[in-house]
C-alpha cells in the first residue's frame, strides 16, 4: 500500500460531475484519477486500479453508495482504504448512518473543485493512521 496519496477513484453516476472531478483531482490536484459511473464498475476497477482513496456518491441508480461501500470493504485489496461519501447536505441522522456504514468522511455537494484535492487529504491521513502495520 502506497505511503503517498496518489490514486483516487471516483464513483459518480452524473457524467458532468465526473468530468469536474477528473479536472479537479487530476488537472488541479495532480492525482491519478479513475472515474466509474456506478457501483458495479467500481467493484470491477478497484482491484485493478488499487486506489489510495475512494470518493463515493450516495444516491446512484444501480448500487447505492452505502451498498457499494459494503461490497468494496469485502475486497481484500480494499481493506483499510479510506472511502469518503459525496452527498448533498444531509440531516444529522442520515449523516450518522452513512458514517456507521464505515465511511471515513463526507464531502458536501456542491464542493469547491479548486480546494477538493486538499479537502480529501485529511481523510486519507486519518485512514492511513488506522491501517494496521
Amino acid at each position: 500500500m502506497s505511503e503517498e496519496l496518489r490514486r483516487v477513484m471516483c464513483v459518480e453516476d452524473d457524467a458532468d460531475i465526473r468530468m469536474i472531478l477528473e479536472f479537479s483531482l487530476g488537472t488541479v490536484g495532480g492525482y491519478e484519477v479513475r472515474c466509474c459511473a456506478g457501483g458495479r464498475a467500481a467493484l470491477q476497477q478497484a482491484p485493478l486500479f488499487r486506489p489510495d482513496l475512494v470518493l463515493l456518491d450516495v444516491m446512484m441508480p444501480d448500487l447505492s453508495g452505502p451498498q457499494t461501500l459494503v461490497a468494496l470493504r469485502e475486497l481484500p485489496s480494499m481493506q483499510g482504504v479510506p472511502v469518503v461519501f459525496m452527498t448533498a447536505k444531509a440531516m444529522p441522522d442520515e449523516l450518522e448512518q452513512l458514517l456507521e456504514h464505515g465511511a471515513t468522511g463526507l464531502i458536501v455537494k456542491p464542493f469547491d473543485p479548486m480546494t477538493l484535492p486538499q479537502d480529501i487529504r485529511p481523510y486519507w491521513e486519518h485512514g492511513r493512521g488506522r491501517r494496521p502495520g
Binding site: 452524473d14 458532468d16 460531475i17 469536474i20 472531478l21 479536472f23 479537479s24 488537472t27 488541479v28 444516491m59 448533498a88 447536505k89 455537494k109 456542491p110 464542493f111 469547491d112 473543485p113 479548486m114
Partner: peptide, 22 residues
C-alpha cells in the same frame, strides 16, 4: 434536493475551475 443539487454541483464546479484558472 438531489435533482437540484446535481446540476448545481456541475455548474459550480465548472465555474470554480474556470475562475481558478484550471
Amino acid at each position: 434536493s438531489h435533482e437540484l443539487r446535481t446540476p448545481l454541483t456541475s455548474v459550480m464546479g465548472a465555474l470554480g475551475l474556470l475562475a481558478g484558472g484550471a
